[in-house]
């Protein structure tokens, strides 16, 4: 398979803070794939995604986005990527339409295309009513939808999402999931971290499990079940086995 068949190609990635956060990581995600990155808190998931998005320089290793090496053409790589974090990156005193116009400008989207896409996205995410209100008064779910619209307005080929469903109500979460599914059907690649294992189980084509900065398991749910030696088990059981957290202790035992 040629290199540009991969939307994301990571080789030998290292990042160290006080201790290694990402340790010799190799990861490949195909074009048009929905990939979920799972791991316990502090496993290094967000660090990996921040390096891919160009927010954090790696200590060593290579990252290619749609065939573009981020070391040699960081701006070119960024133009292919959209980053959505759990904290919506919006401005309190811009309206959603102003925000989308701003992002479209940063990503060089032609004005007319930007206008059409902005209205379409706001309609799609049911934000038309709030299109001209300051974002400062919005709920977390609405802010996350505005941020998602911002990520989609420049038609990225790779969307990176770090816990995008945190704090969303069921309706908003459903809308976000539908939008992501639709984008994958259009050939967009999605790499997402989540602690909601059910979402990963239902939506992701492949799942990577990270622990202590290393990729310890990868594959479809069936493949992970085999790797964990737990055929027929839920992703939750498989995941806990893989990261070595096993069965939770009973409260009485702990107290004793």
């Amino acid at each position: 398979m040629s290199d540009d068949a991969f939307a994301l190609d990571i080789k030998g990635l290292h990042k160290r803070f006080d201790k290694p956060a990402v340790d010799n990581l190799d990861l490949r995600v195909k074009q048009g794939e929905f990939y979920a990155l799972l791991g316990p808190n502090g496993a290094g998931k967000t660090t990996i995604l921040r390096m891919v998005a160009g927010l954090l320089p790696p200590d060593a290793g290579e990252i290619s986005v749609c065939g573009i090496d981020t070391r040699f053409d960081p701006v070119g790589a960024k133009s292919q990527v959209a980053w959505v974090s759990d904290e919506p990156m919006v401005y309190d005193r811009l309206t959603p339409l102003e925000y989308l116009r701003f992002i479209a400008g940063l990503w060089h989207v032609p004005a007319e295309d930007a206008r059409l896409r902005a209205y379409q996205l706001l309609d799609w995410l049911e934000l038309t009513q709030q299109a001209n209100s300051y974002c400062g008064g919005f709920s977390k779910g609405m802010l996350q939808k505005v941020a998602l619209a911002g990520a989609l307005i420049h038609d990225p080929r790779l969307i990176i999402l770090d816990e995008p469903l945190t704090g969303l109500d069921a309706g908003s979460a459903r809308q976000v999931k539908n939008v992501l599914k639709e984008k994958v059907s259009q050939g967009v690649t999605i790499v997402m971290t989540t602690h909601i294992l059910e979402v990963a189980e239902r939506m992701a084509e492949r799942i990577g499990v990270i622990a202590k900065g290393r990729l310890i398991a990868e594959g479809t749910l069936a493949e992970l079940q085999v790797q964990a030696g737990r055929s027929g088990s839920s992703l939750e059981d498989v995941f806990l086995d893989l990261v070595g957290q096993g069965e939770p202790q009973v409260l009485e035992q702990t107290a004793a």
Partner: peptide
């Protein structure tokens, strides 16, 4: 983060 991920 938004500004830093922009292609400029």
């Amino acid at each position: 983060d938004l500004i830093l991920t922009a292609p400029l």
